[in-house]
Design a protein around this nucleic acid. Structure first.
Length: 155
DNA sequence: AACGGAAGAC
DNA sequence: GTCTTCCGTT
């Protein structure tokens, strides 16, 4: 067993889950293995405590900015028990998402990437599962859903 | 900073 | 398969 690998980062008390189940289904989803990087990114994005580290870019739905690359890498490394993780390696993993159509780069904007939510999430997770106990809060967290597929379902 | 090939871990 | 590690190139 590796040293320092027993960390279980569960959002506690105040933070709570603002995110639908599927965003946390990293270990319980059918046939799944380890946590995926894009799950982790969404997780950070969803918590206010990490807003100085990573945050949604206002104006562009699904676009986010890594404000502190070293810290994001450190947190990712801690989660994956990879103490040697850094932004160079993390960003290589992000680049592999380009062909998978999970992410793409916002060219010209430093440390800025964009989720392809409509391609990635909606086909995989039915609308019914995206409901949170607090609808308004959810809309703030993931405006992309309102802008794309959700609207057509609501209207 | 950002990209993507290559090899390897799991 | 999903990264992690390393690294030459742009």
């Amino acid at each position: 067993m590796k040293a320092g690998c027993s960390i279980v980062e569960k959002p506690e008390g105040g933070g709570g889950y603002q995110f639908p189940d599927w965003a946390y289904k990293t270990e319980s989803s059918p046939g799944s293995r380890q946590i995926q990087l894009w799950h982790f990114i969404l997780e950070l994005l969803q918590k206010e405590e990490f807003r100085h580290v990573i945050a949604w870019q206002q104006g562009e739905y699904g676009e986010f900015v890594i404000k502190d690359p070293d810290e994001v890498a450190r947190l990712w490394g801690r989660r994956k028990c990879k103490p040697q993780m850094n932004y160079d390696k993390l960003s290589r993993a992000l680049r592999y998402y380009y062909n998978k159509r999970i992410l793409h780069k916002t060219k010209g904007k430093r440390f800025t990437y964009k989720f392809n939510f409509n391609k990635l999430v909606m086909p995989n997770y039915p609308f019914i599962n995206i409901r949170s106990s607090d609808g308004n809060l959810f809309l703030q967290t993931l405006p992309i859903f309102c802008e794309t597929s959700m609207l057509s379902l609501i209207k």
